[in-house]
């Protein structure tokens, strides 16, 4: 069991409280988190990723109850065990593609291997963009680089928040196929929060909020 969510609820600053259904995600089966805007998809994803704290209930990732970790421990844990993919603005524009990818092992304190950079770039068919400027990439390409970065540390869990919403149909399919492929290749549990109906046909396991 890579991700386990039990009786989790979160109270916003406004006083509104959302309770989430219990579920679990394994490494072998990717999972969609569906729901309308405002249903708490992003909140749940941030709770699972430890970006947001102070929830009720229990979130266990790879045998670690992350509710019990301090903030610094969470930072470290996130770097080593979780890969994030966001809808947009995910790359650091001051850095080249290669250095963007190397940020993942650098920030989580893992060895920086250029061979691994090439490997993950090959996985998303962007090996020729290794030294490119991030600003020179298209949306679809940038999203693929983000996927490459998310899997670079071989995380136990990949959390994707609307990874395809900003993409056209062709790129959407290409990106989701690659995401599924690299997640499987790296044996990472994949949880995608989205309202993108196009993904339903690709991933059968769905949790609806």
């Amino acid at each position: 069991m890579m991700i386990q969510v039990q009786q989790v609820a979160y109270s916003y600053e406004t006083g509104k409280t959302i309770s989430f259904p219990d579920f679990a995600v394994t490494g072998s089966e990717p999972c969609l988190l569906l729901g309308e805007s405002g249903s708490g998809k992003t909140t749940l994803l941030h709770l699972i990723g430890g970006l947001l704290k102070n929830q009720q209930g229990k979130i266990v990732i790879h045998d670690t109850n992350i509710s019990q970790l301090s903030e610094t421990e969470l930072d470290k844990f996130r770097g080593k065990h979780i890969g994030f993919i966001f809808q947009k603005n995910h790359l650091i524009s001051a850095l080249s593609v290669k250095n963007n990818l190397l940020m993942a092992p650098y920030l989580s304190g893992l060895p920086q291997q250029e061979s691994r950079v090439r490997e993950v770039l090959e996985g998303v068919s962007l090996q020729e963009k290794e030294n490119a400027n991030v600003n020179a990439l298209s949306h679809g390409q940038a999203q693929r680089v983000a996927i490459a970065r998310a899997v670079l540390n071989k995380p136990d869990v990949i959390l994707a928040d609307e990874p395809t919403s900003a993409l056209d149909d062709k790129n959407c399919m290409r990106v989701i196929d690659m995401l599924l492929a690299v997640a499987k290749q790296n044996n990472s549990a994949l949880l995608i929060a989205t309202h993108d109906q196009r993904l339903k046909s690709k991933i059968s396991r769905q949790i609806i909020l």
Binding site: G49, L51, T72, D75, K76, F77, R78, G79, K80, F84, F86, H90, L91, I92, S93, A94, M103, A104, L107, S108, G109, R149
Partner: peptide, 11 residues
């Protein structure tokens, strides 16, 4: 950028 770096494990 800062938030992304935090999400990648930066303290």
């Amino acid at each position: 950028d800062l938030a992304i770096m935090r999400s990648m494990g930066a303290s």
